[in-house]
């Protein structure tokens, strides 16, 4: 019983660590690259895109998809380890 409690706490802490990391990236992408830094990044041009504009209208969405994908994969592994314990 006590062991189970320890495992559960460890599982939750692992989850929180992953969450925090991914949400920081989420926040930085949307608000840092897409809004606060947009004018700075717009000075860089890649093909026909000003970079800040590209992040705001394209790049952010790709990164969001990637973040959820990474979370789903990562949690599958954490779930697996928890079940094995």
């Amino acid at each position: 019983m006590a062991d189970r409690r320890v495992d559960e706490a460890r599982y939750w802490r692992a989850n929180l660590r992953i969450l925090t990391l991914l949400l920081l990236i989420w926040f930085f992408t949307a608000f840092g690259l897409g809004i606060l830094g947009v004018e700075l990044l717009n000075r860089i041009q890649i093909a026909g895109f000003p970079l800040g504009f590209w992040f705001a209208q394209q790049g952010a969405i790709y990164i969001f998809i990637l973040l959820i994908f990474v979370y789903a994969c990562w949690m599958d592994r954490v779930d697996g380890r928890f079940r094995a314990d």
Partner: peptide, 16 residues
Amino acid sequence: AIYLMGWTGGYVLLAL
């Protein structure tokens, strides 16, 4: 971009 990021970024919150 308010609509593009606003209406997709919410899914990160939802999923996590």
